[in-house]
Amino acid sequence: MKRLLTALLLLASLGNAQAETLTLPHQGLQVSAELERAGDDWKAGPVILMLHGTLAHNRMEIISTLQQAFLERGYSSLAVNLSLGLSAREGMYDCAAPHRHLHTDAVDEVGLWLDWLKGQGVQSVVLFGHSRGGNQIARYAAAHDSALIRSVVLAAPQTWSAGYDEKNYQTRYGKPLATELKRAEALVAKGQGDTLMQPVDILYCQQTAATAHAFLSYHQPDPRMDTPTVLREVRKPTLVIAGSADETVRDLPERMSAANPGAHAQLVTIDGADHFFLDLYAEELADAAAGFIEAH
């Protein structure tokens, strides 16, 4: 009851604040983000730069709910919508559209929006990523130890272990991943990495089209898809938040222990939360993130 009353008071104090949709040009595309300002002095920061998960978008429930929850706790946020190779993309990625995007494209787009925040005079930024977006945020933080970045918060970030993707692909699509990898590798070897493989099954999308480069980007064996491993290279204080009922990233605590990323990285588990931290679990996530941000 106390939490509910506090939230209602904070909501009343925020008035009719609404997110502002921003667009920027990037490599011939238009990319967008949703900005929530916590007051006129929002540039003093920290501003939380948020990144969604696989083939998703910046208005999905976990992102929009957390933007509001962060706003109620006094934090501005910028929720980035990855282009995934499409201009002015909205909503979930249409599986029928050819996949020309790469997992690592996100790193450049995160940098684009960080540069925008810096250009606005923002003084500090917290990087936040959910699921695959957690791995992409970790990769950015590992490669760019900027003074602008205050800390990193990752919710159910992607993990990886040898053989898992092969097993998952076989279960999902009923065929060996190795066959499709060889197909993609052969195209790349011939200098045809931008050639569309079709039909092909990629990520969550069945019988679609994808370039050989795109297929390899998401499905070739790559230890850097394991976020806890990438965190060894991150120098900023990092909070990793797991859900005890997460059926998507089931091994996060075990992977954190095995990778041993260092004292700068902390793990918190929210009991009962699934991969998307629905309902009151989002409030617990926001509380954990806010406490960590305040302490670092």
Rank of each mutant, 00 (worst) to 15 (best):
E294I: 02
P223F: 12
A155C: 04
R172S: 15
S146H: 03
V249Y: 07
S161D: 15
Q67I: 02
E294R: 12
A242E: 09
L35F: 07
Y173M: 03
M50G: 04
T65Q: 15
V188H: 10
H57A: 05
L51M: 07
V268M: 05
A162Q: 15
M197S: 13
P46N: 11
G174W: 08
G111V: 02
A212H: 02
K182S: 14
S257E: 15
V47N: 10
I137S: 11
R172E: 12
M1R: 06
P221T: 12
T195V: 15
H219D: 08
L280T: 08
A56N: 10
K2R: 11
R132L: 14
I293H: 02
V80Q: 01
E20G: 02
L252M: 11
E294F: 00
R255N: 01
L196R: 06
G129P: 03
Q206R: 15
L278A: 11
H99L: 14
L84M: 11
D115G: 15
I62E: 02
A212F: 05
I149F: 03
H57N: 12
H103G: 00
G39L: 07
S87F: 09
A265R: 04
K43G: 03
A245D: 13
C95T: 09
L51Y: 00
R232A: 08
V107R: 10
K2A: 09
L239Q: 05
A12E: 12
G291E: 06
A147R: 13
T227Q: 09
Q123I: 09
F128G: 00
R250F: 06
T21G: 06
R89G: 04
A142N: 06
I241D: 01
I293R: 01
G45I: 05
V234L: 00
L216A: 10
A38S: 14
E61G: 01
A189W: 09
G291P: 01
E34S: 10
L84D: 03
E34F: 01
V268G: 00
A143H: 00
A214Q: 12
R255H: 05
L29T: 06
H101Y: 11
A242M: 08
P157S: 14
W42C: 05
W160E: 13
Q192A: 10
V31F: 02
L187S: 08
H103D: 06
D145W: 07
T227I: 11
M197P: 09
L285Y: 15
D145M: 03
A143R: 04
Q266W: 01
F277Q: 05
G134Y: 00
M60Q: 14
G134W: 01
I62T: 07
L8K: 07
T54F: 09
R224Q: 14
S151L: 07
E284I: 00
R89M: 06
M256E: 13
L66H: 13
Y204G: 05
E185L: 13
M225C: 03
T104L: 14
D194H: 10
Y218W: 15
E72N: 12
V249A: 04
L154W: 01
T229A: 09
E61I: 01
T104P: 00
T171W: 07
I137Q: 14
G191H: 11
H296N: 13
L82Q: 09
A12N: 08
V31W: 09
R255I: 02
A286Q: 09
L8Y: 06
